[in-house]
Design a protein around this nucleic acid. Structure first.
Lengths: 96, 96
DNA sequence: AATATGTTTCGATAATCATGGAAATATATT
DNA sequence: AATATATTTCCATGATTATCGAAACATATT
């Protein structure tokens, strides 16, 4: 992962609401969580929530899958791992 | 580390210039790097650089130490570790 | 086809952030 | 004290972001 992509992903996770959304998704597992369930759980207005999810999707941290009327949001564990790896590489040059 | 602090730190690292500054500091080691050296290395105008460093300091990712005329910027490895830990906890609930 | 449910897009407003030149501050040297 | 070096603060401008109600869109059910 290059530094631009890392920065973009860090920026998207760098917002409390989005970080909480992502956390909620990760806890939900690989099958994904419906947008409506996130809305209920985190108590965020639909339009605001949609905006934040769009941003997470735009950097590849979340993927959406539709099943009938419900849209499932699936956290991309691999991308998060990559981001963690990037930070660790930075850190470990002089530390680990 | 609570979610607010994590989000704040992620947000500050979520900017290419700041991420590059931090990377440069980490590679510089524990003794720290003078502001002027960062400026030279990354080719950022002084006022802009100062602004970004201030932000990194404001969330505890960098600490400054003065020696004569030069201000050394010291990356806080422990805080970065904590942030990485936070992300890993999120990730590992369903994955690792 | 009409209605209900789930989610997004639109649109407007307020807030925050990024940028960099010029001037100011702090410390050192002569 | 005058000058040089290192860095910041001030200031203004432009850009991006956050917020959320209302309306629109998509899919399902009756």
């Amino acid at each position: 992962m290059d530094v631009q992509m890392a920065a973009k992903r860090l920026a998207e996770l760098g917002h409390v609401t989005r970080l909480e959304i992502f956390r909620y998704l990760v806890r939900g597992g690989h099958q994904g969580v419906p947008v409506g369930e996130i809305q209920l759980a985190l108590d965020v207005p639909g339009s605001t929530l949609s905006h934040h999810i769009t941003r997470l999707v735009s950097v590849g941290l979340v993927v959406q899958r539709r099943d009938g009327r419900t849209l499932y949001c699936v956290p991309q564990y691999t991308e998060l791992d990559g981001l963690i790896g990037f930070l660790q590489e930075q850190c470990c040059i002089n530390e680990c």
